[in-house]
Design a protein around this nucleic acid. Structure first.
Length: 428
RNA sequence: GGUGGGGUGGCCGAGUGGCCGAAGGCGCUCCCCUGCUAAGGGAGUAACGGGUUUAUAGCCUGUUCGAGGGUUCGAAUCCCUCCUCCACCGCCA
């Protein structure tokens, strides 16, 4: 959520910034609604004030033993007027909220301007894709041949976009998550967290999945009148970031760095036909997520650091990757600036996203009322939130299968994972 | 799942229809006293929003006593629904 003051006082400039990310803000409509809101709010509050003083008078008159009947009757008219004013105000407020809830965050000036992913800017590449003296296979072929990836059973049990893993591949998958958690907690200063996988609507609203992106979520049966029960988390960013909801931290508490390994559930509405083959786009996948709650002066610094933590995983696994900064048109709803890390997949002969690291600024914090108090200051201020994958476990598995494949179809186990695999050097 | 008791300001805790945004205490801030990290005295101290404003100062005003709805001229107080905490029972990985 943007600061309401932007939409009131700097609406032209705000609209200009939003245009950079392809969002068309209806300035005329919003200004008109805003004007209505203002006058309705003033008249409503005047009526309330009038009611309050008159009610007090009635109380005092009653105490003196006077006849209060005429006073009460006179109030009826006022009450009617007040009720009507309140209703009109509520309607306009709701209209404004409906619009402003769907306005994305303002892009940071350092985010390149562009309309879609084709205009993302490569920052660096790391590592050199291996040359193979045999025809490379993709992870589906490799995994099935090894008996470790079982798409057929998954379809039977659940449907498409699910996976059953088995044996050493399942263990490798688990080892990856363990390795990532250990790296972030031991070397990068994060606190390991275990969090709920089902969350309430308030949490989803807090991090920005609702109201706009409800279709991407798996919901449990409606438990409330609004028809929103608990939802399966689409990312651990939701429970982790919501830790800060309605909390006022001391300045000295910051930064708070949390990491968690969770499954993530996404309906992938609107992505029919994309990446239907393999593990790239699943309804259920594991991810190790990093979240930071930081001082607003330090959030862009923290973005570099957090992205570096995700990069470190790829480096330690010796997986070639590239880092891109997303252009304004390709950024997520809540982000001010986002780096994507894309890992090299030899079978696709291209880089594919494996991590997305964003500075959200105060956008989530405003909805969450996540604040801190500067030492000595009286008023709390909004803090800044960041999140990033460190990494998507399933996609990392894909990258390992494909990058570490041998001519005979076996998979070499990356050096840092061998101890997790009981010393195993090859799968198959 | 059952029964009973709770949810009030930074914290504790009073408050069953108007004089309550809310006693009292703790904490905190300022001042006084005191030759010193004690004791005492006094004053102040909720949050959020709107309007005005250069102003996150002041002034005016609204809302908020777990959440939402209702009754009433008027609700922390009465009614309904929900959430949540505690205790005991049941069940259970």
């Amino acid at each position: 959520m943007l600061d309401a003051k932007f939409l009131r006082n700097d609406i032209e400039q705000t609209a200009e910034l939003l245009k950079k990310r392809g969002f068309d803000l209806d300035v005329n409509l919003l200004s008109e609604l805003e004007e209505k809101r203002k006058s309705l709010q003033i008249s409503t509050e005047n009526l309330q004030s009038e009611r309050n003083t008159r009610s007090k008078d009635i109380g005092q008159a009653a105490k003196r033993g006077e006849d209060i009947k005429p006073l009460r009757e006179a109030m009826n008219e006022l009450s009617d007027a007040l009720e009507k004013a309140k209703e009109e105000f509520a309607v306009v407020s709701e209209q404004i909220k409906t619009i402003s809830d769907r306005v994305p965050n303002l892009p940071h000036e350092s985010a390149p301007i562009g309309k879609d992913e084709s205009e993302n800017v490569e920052v660096l590449t790391w590592g050199t894709p291996k040359q193979y003296d045999f025809a490379v296979k993709d992870h589906v072929e490799l995994g099935e041949a090894l008996g470790g990836l079982d798409f057929k059973s998954a379809v039977k049990i659940s449907g498409s976009r699910f996976i059953v893993m088995q044996g050493q591949i399942a263990k490798l998958h688990r080892s990856l998550a363990q390795y990532m958690l250990n790296l972030h907690t031991n070397d990068h200063g994060y606190t390991e967290m275990y969090v709920p996988y089902l969350v309430n609507a308030d949490s989803l609203y807090g991090t920005g999945q609702l109201p706009k992106f409800g279709d991407d979520l798996f919901n449990t049966n409606p438990a409330t009148e609004e028809g929103i029960g608990m939802s399966l988390i689409p990312t651990a960013e939701v429970p982790l970031t919501n830790m800060s909801r309605d909390v006022i931290y001391d300045e000295s508490d910051l930064p708070i760095k949390m990491t968690a390994h969770t499954p993530c559930f996404r309906s992938e509405a609107g992505s029919y036909g994309r990446d239907t083959r393999g593990l790239i786009r699943q309804h259920q996948f594991d991810k190790v997520e990093m979240v930071q709650l930081v001082h607003p002066d330090k959030s862009f610094e923290a973005l570099e650091e957090l992205t570096g933590h995700a990069e470190q995983v790829l480096k330690n696994l010796e997986l070639p990757y590239r880092k891109v900064v997303l252009c304004t048109g390709d950024m997520g709803f809540s982000a001010t600036k986002t780096y994507d890390l894309e890992v090299w997949l030899p079978a696709q002969d291209t880089y594919r996203e494996i991590s997305s690291c964003s500075n959200v600024g105060d956008f989530q914090a405003r909805r969450l009322q996540a604040r801190f108090r500067r030492s000595g200051a009286k008023k709390p201020e909004l803090l800044h939130t960041l999140n990033g994958s460190g990494l998507a476990v399933g996609r990392t598995l894909v990258a390992i299968l494909e990058n570490y494949q041998c001519a005979d179809g076996r998979i070499e186990v990356p050096a840092v994972l061998q101890s997790y695999m009981g010393g195993l050097t090859h799968i198959g």
